[in-house]
Design a binder for these strands. Structure first.
Lengths: 101, 101
DNA sequence: TAACTATACTCTGTTTTTCAGAGTATAGGC
DNA sequence: GCCTATACTCTGAAAAACAGAGTATAGTTA
């Protein structure tokens, strides 16, 4: 989105909880609120605020899905922009940590 | 220091400015306030607060050095604990981003 | 079928963090 | 002796992170 220096780390993604959310969703494709909460072991309010931040950046999408049961369940996944930003974030990380990877 | 889950990212190091400070110091050994400021392109106050945070965690040392000139110059470098925490941080990152590295 | 429980959130408010800019001290150059 | 650059520190504002209470509703049990 905005032009960044090759060493500037995306503040939306470079945060302890959000890096994990993004990596988890890249690996798994999608997850429910509860799955994320279990994985991260954080409070509802905290998860909610990170989801909100990710959505405000346009990185996360929320979709209602009809599963086998009648109940609609909401799943979260990365948007295309979120996936691209995550890729760029990884590239920046590699540049910064070049010595180590 | 404190026991962390294998996926918890050290909050002192997993922050846009501080990750870069640590990586820069790992690569270069030491740096002055001005060198860091130039590298990061941030304000004095902002750099100061990140240095303070790193020092509060015991990761950064500040040393007065007598160089060629008469003037004593202060150099910053990672403490042993800082180096170890950075190594651990990298391991955690690799675990979380396994898919990608 | 009414009460209970679990899921899936949102809202509010507090604490902590991040950041900019002004302020201070000192050394070296003109 | 004055000016400028370096090397910080201090203060306060703005934003972020977080916990816990609150709300809505679907499914479960008595």
């Amino acid at each position: 989105m905005d032009a960044m220096s090759p060493f500037e780390l995306d503040a939306t993604l470079h945060q302890p909880i959000r890096t994990r959310i993004a990596a988890f969703l890249i690996a798994r494709g999608e997850a429910t609120f509860t799955e994320l909460k279990k994985e991260l072991a954080i409070t509802d309010g905290n998860l909610e605020s990170h989801i909100k931040k990710l959505r405000a950046s346009g990185y996360l999408s929320k979709e209602k899905k009809m599963g086998a049961s009648k109940r609609a369940q909401t799943v979260y996944s990365l948007t295309r922009d979120g996936q691209e930003s995550f890729e760029n974030y990884l590239e920046t990380l590699k540049r910064i940590l070049a010595v180590k990877f």
